[in-house]
Design a binder for these strands. Structure first.
Lengths: 328, 328
DNA sequence: CCGTGAAGATAAAACCTTTTAGCAAATATT
DNA sequence: AATATTTGCTAAAAGGTTTTATCTTCACGG
């Protein structure tokens, strides 16, 4: 209803200049040699009338929007949803807001969104990149826009990133499945993707299996296909290879796997999955988890990004966060 | 690196006025009688140099930020994560972005966030309100800020909202559990909350049970307590009342319930929960779901809000979306 | 030849800040 | 006493748009 107060209203009502008010509100009173008395007068008045600066105007002038863009594949995926929650909290502590969006494996939408965010003067990007985003991220870097990747990074791209210890996690996870008995057969269900985190998990699995001289068994699920397809494929993989144990490279693959097991009444001794999920303790057989440290990842991501925004960055920062193994 | 072009750069380079460029870019060429030739010239040039308007400046001038604020209890909760995903998609179609945050049952943080968003000139709010937010939302309404509530609404607050058919959903869900046999005993696990959607679910349960002249058995879980407490409480509730079937008022209560069942080896015939969850088909006994139509809720929320922002609103809009019952 | 209206464009104000450069008065230095 | 420095404050520019009001030119009817 009644128009919001602006800084010049404050100045006029107090019979002083806008500059003075601005300095005081930005904690530059000391530095700019504004008297204590004046400072107090302004602060009291501002408090009394409840003035709040217009952030848009502020951003326009300073070029900083105090907003970060978060781009993930699918915010409804529990891994991303959980990390988004953490990221928001950490960002909040620094006075930053988050705008998010899901890219849904649509490279064009992703590119468009990045441009869109960029046009909105977003201060920095937090991205779980999909293949095909290399150029557009490269463009951001060229324009000196702060970027931190997480969950995966891209080859040929010199960026900051925070990822989990995928190789090691997969290795330890696979060891849970293995058994000295020559006959124990364990397989990996992963996705059809060249994403580096998936490569890491694959290599970890492979190394563990090979160290016991067993056969490396891998099936790669096509991302886009309907879940029923996936379930069938996993069933066939398990049956044809007479598997005793399976390592799932992601959360949602494990869920499809469990559906396959239930639906087709398969019997397996042990299951392990990347990422934790409420359901893993509730099904039979229980699923052990290679749980990523979401809080630490989020903390690092936000800190690295904000350091870079504030010019406090010391070159590239690339962090690998250990996983925790939850044995069930 | 190189400074971004501004509209006045365009104008200078073309030797024309800023106004002309602005009119053309805002599709007002016809209306403002700019010649076809001029229009084409400008459009071609803008395209060639890849000029993009500064959204901050635009927002500052127009007072519209093309951004909506989404406030939920906990974005990592699958219900909210899924709906956030949908909301983002619908908003995107209208050129709107979403900034989100989790309130985590912290009324003060919630208030602060709402004020913060408001200061950022957010065009409208999408809120799943918690108790205690009445006043601050009231304040938004008084200032003519468009608001749509979802999942629940608040008494004494005349707002737009989109909720599910809680009463009916709970009624139908409870009917799934019931059985003509006099001996069948069914209970409701809900939360200790006066939120209206929970009241609705409770009433639906009660009505179904009473219609068969059976005993109404309800336990209310304290929100803040550690999950182990909750699990114990559910166990006791089930055991003490010798229940055959349980209706869970939310997703996460069902999960705690399943943990109780597994951990203490309880045996129940049937379970029903509000909200769908991947895990419900995988556990034993399988959990039937009263699934909310997330897509429709999101669609409505966004449309109502944007209509109101554009002044196309016809008074209060209060929508109740039917639930789908998934029997397992 | 004058007045009217439309066509085609524009100058300048407005949105609300931050920040640079500078002014006047008070104090310190020589 | 004259000069230099510090103190306390401010005018105005800058940031990039949109929009109002206005200006010039040309065509047309009378």
């Amino acid at each position: 209803m009644k128009k919001r107060l602006s800084i010049s209203d404050i100045a006029n009502n107090l019979g002083i200049s806008v500059t003075t008010v601005s300095f005081i509100l930005n904690d530059k009173a000391k530095e700019k040699r504004i008297s204590e008395a004046m400072t107090k007068k302004v602060l009291d008045y501002v408090d009394k009338v409840g003035y709040k600066p217009n952030q848009l105007a502020k951003s326009l002038r300073t070029g900083k929007s105090k907003t970060l863009g978060l781009l993930v594949e699918d915010i409804s995926n529990s891994f991303f949803a959980n990390i988004a929650d953490q990221i928001e909290k950490f960002a909040y502590d620094f006075g930053y807001h988050i705008v998010y969006c899901s890219m849904n494996n649509d490279v064009n939408r992703a590119k468009e969104l990045i441009e869109l965010f960029y046009d909105r003067q977003i201060d920095g990007f937090i991205i779980a990149p999909t293949e095909g985003l290399t150029e557009v991220i490269q463009k951001l870097l060229k324009n000196n826009v702060p970027v931190v990747l997480f969950d995966r990074h891209l080859e040929d791209l010199e960026t900051n990133f925070v990822i989990s210890e995928n190789h090691r996690g997969a290795y330890t996870g696979t060891c849970l499945l293995l058994n000295e008995k020559k006959s124990t057969r364990v397989g990996l269900v992963t996705i059809d993707s060249r994403q580096l985190q998936m490569q890491g998990r694959m290599d970890g699995y492979r190394e563990a299996v090979e160290s016991l001289g067993k056969e490396v068994l891998i099936t790669q699920i096509v991302r886009a296909q309907p879940e029923d397809e996936t379930i069938l494929q996993i069933r066939d993989f398990i049956q044809e290879n007479r598997l005793d144990g399976v390592l799932f490279a992601t959360n949602y693959l494990a869920i499809s796997g469990l559906k396959a097991i239930k639906r087709y009444n398969l019997s397996l001794e042990k299951l392990v999955s990347f990422d934790e999920n409420a359901l893993f303790s509730l099904v039979d057989p229980a699923v052990s988890a290679i749980s990523q440290n979401l809080q630490e990842i989020a903390r690092q991501v936000v800190h690295i990004l904000i350091d870079e925004i504030n010019g406090k960055s010391k070159g590239l920062v690339q962090v690998v966060v250990p996983c925790e193994v939850i044995v069930r």
